[in-house]
């Protein structure tokens, strides 16, 4: 297997890598770049622990190969803090105890950040009653849109509270 040269832009920083083309984006982040904040829970796209944001959209980084992402803007959990301050979503997860073991948490938070952007852009979900109108971000909408991220500790109700808190623009 011949390696490929690929430049990945992660959290605004460019990394030139010489990669086995079989390396997933998830493993490139964790094993090649040492950014272990993104987690491997199933390696088959079923748990959401590996969720990262690529060009503004959340994806399962275990289901895509790293060499496919030259030129993409990749945001991971390590890239959400600004000037050493927690992203509002990170702070809300702590405040609402939207985590226990913490293993699904980076994926949950990346997913939640992208969810708010999707909602803002007017994307409907399965829980949207009328897809022709702008969806209202009910708890049911949040829960539906977060159901690709499994939390076996089952902090789900607190995760919904944390996301609602941020969506409403501040502390509850």
């Amino acid at each position: 297997m011949h390696n490929e040269n690929v430049a990945l832009t992660v959290n605004g920083r460019r990394h030139a890598l010489d990669l086995d083309p079989r390396v997933t984006l998830l493993d490139a982040l964790r094993e090649n770049l040492g950014m272990t904040g993104t987690k491997k829970g199933c390696d088959q796209g079923q748990c959401g622990a590996c969720t990262v944001i690529v060009n503004g959209q959340r994806i399962n980084s275990c289901l895509t190969l790293a060499v496919m992402h030259a030129g993409d803007e990749i945001t991971t959990i390590e890239g959400l803090e600004e000037d050493g301050n927690l992203h509002p979503m990170q702070a809300a997860f702590v405040r609402h105890d939207g985590l226990q073991c913490g293993y699904c948490t980076p994926g949950q938070i990346c997913s939640a950040v992208a969810l708010l952007a999707e909602h803002k852009a007017g994307w409907p979900s399965y829980a949207t009653a009328d897809v022709a109108t702008a969806p209202v971000l009910t708890d049911g909408e949040i829960a539906e849109r977060m159901s690709g991220n499994v939390c076996r500790c089952s902090a789900y109700s607190n995760i919904v509270s944390a996301i609602r808190d941020v969506a409403e623009g501040g502390r509850i």
Partner: peptide, 8 residues
């Protein structure tokens, strides 16, 4: 340990 966990 919340801060450590939400920052990865």
């Amino acid at each position: 340990d919340g801060q450590l966990k939400v920052t990865g």
